[in-house]
């Protein structure tokens, strides 16, 4: 889940840098094209990350140190079972 080489924050920051560099116009045509290509890739990455909605909003930490996902009564998330425990990345 968090094995991506670039975090969302880093990707967004890099994207902002590239846009700024292109807008300042201090670089040549080839570098401009390279910046554009990298920027578009980062743009896609950020969009995808923002569309990745977590189905399991809440996990309750148990007294014995284990975890139990629960269905919060106040929200209408898709139903999740306790069987999903294996998906936790730790």
């Amino acid at each position: 889940m968090s094995t991506a080489p670039l975090s969302f924050e880093q990707a967004l920051q890099r994207l902002e840098e590239l846009v700024q560099r292109l807008e300042e116009g201090e670089i040549g045509l080839e570098d401009s094209l390279a910046a554009y290509r990298e920027g578009m890739a980062l743009h896609r990455l950020c969009q995808e990350r923002l569309r990745k909605v977590e189905e399991e909003l809440l996990t309750v930490l148990q007294e014995d140190g284990s975890l139990a996902p629960i269905q919060p009564s106040g929200t209408t998330e898709a139903a999740t079972n306790n069987g999903n425990r294996d998906e936790l990345p730790f």
């Binding site: 292109l22 116009g25 045509l29 554009y36 920027g39 743009h43 923002l50």
Partner: peptide
């Protein structure tokens, strides 16, 4: 999330606009 999506989309648009501007400027 909607605001952040918008920010990302804006950056995408600015990226394209900046490239076009750069070519015109050259």
């Amino acid at each position: 999330r909607e605001a952040v999506l918008q920010l990302v989309d804006d950056l995408g648009r600015r990226l394209e606009g900046a490239l076009k501007g750069r070519v015109q400027e050259l």
